[in-house]
Write a protein that binds this DNA or RNA. Sequence first.
DNA 1: CTGCAATTATTCTAATTGCAAGTATTCAAG
DNA 2: CTTGAATACTTGCAATTAGAATAATTGCAG
Lengths: 140, 140
Amino acid sequence: MNEAERLAEVERNLCGLVSGTARLIEDHVRERAAKLGLTAPQASALRELAGPMTLRELSDRMGCEPSNATFIADKLEGLGLIERHPHPRDRRAKRLVLTPEGQALRERLLDLLSAHSPLAALSPQEQETLRDLLLRAHGS
Amino acid sequence: MNEAERLAEVERNLCGLVSGTARLIEDHVRERAAKLGLTAPQASALRELAGPMTLRELSDRMGCEPSNATFIADKLEGLGLIERHPHPRDRRAKRLVLTPEGQALRERLLDLLSAHSPLAALSPQEQETLRDLLLRAHGS
DNA sequence: CTGCAATTATTCTAATTGCAAGTATTCAAG
DNA sequence: CTTGAATACTTGCAATTAGAATAATTGCAG
């Protein structure tokens, strides 16, 4: 193995580690979501809905296409967890708001997600270090 | 916002950051792969194929279902980049081996991927710190 | 040696996701 | 005021992915 390949190997391992951690998190979300009868993306959406939010904003936070956010929102609306309200200032947009049932389920979800999270193994300082490193990676 | 929700918020941000970084990496792979006429998962598979490998091992490394690895392997085989050889000891298994064309393309791919990687913004020490933190998260 | 559980790969089906087109609305320039 | 570009959402379609069922093979327990 030459030098270029060795460096690529180190790089690959680290990239794979990040991706693997993301999968770990997603698996964790999926498992907890299942306990509440939700799919992983549904749970992620519910998690992001800390307050009224437009579909575009939700898709940005979830890192998916707007069409996908529409799909997920349809599901959550079908479950009676959210409602589409007209946006007060922009008649194009719709604000997603939690119903009381959605509020309640969201709190149960947050409890489940924070318990035994893959990142809970790290101390608060370590979590801060991790955050700083990842933010710098994003900055480039 | 109560204390539990605040902690969940911190947790959520960090999880989102990890997932966001993973997306950053995937976008990087997708962009570089396109230059070689490959899709992102095809490139990931080619990257993982450092040596002869079973389909199960590939799916494990890629973090996908075996059915998916079969799908990807079909594509790579169709491109003449890999071949399915019978496993010397296990007649159930098949070993994926790179053709000379596959070898050549893989080296070009590794060069492309290591250049301007999202994680290249971090110094070697920082990369090591990041690796240690992520490994600890996996260990839990 | 025999039978049974586990593993490997494949196929098929269903769900998810992204991409492109279409409609309605806003915003800004002239 | 009007026109054109940009934005928000939805819809339809194609491609990707996961999940369950199947078949062949292995390895172990009895």
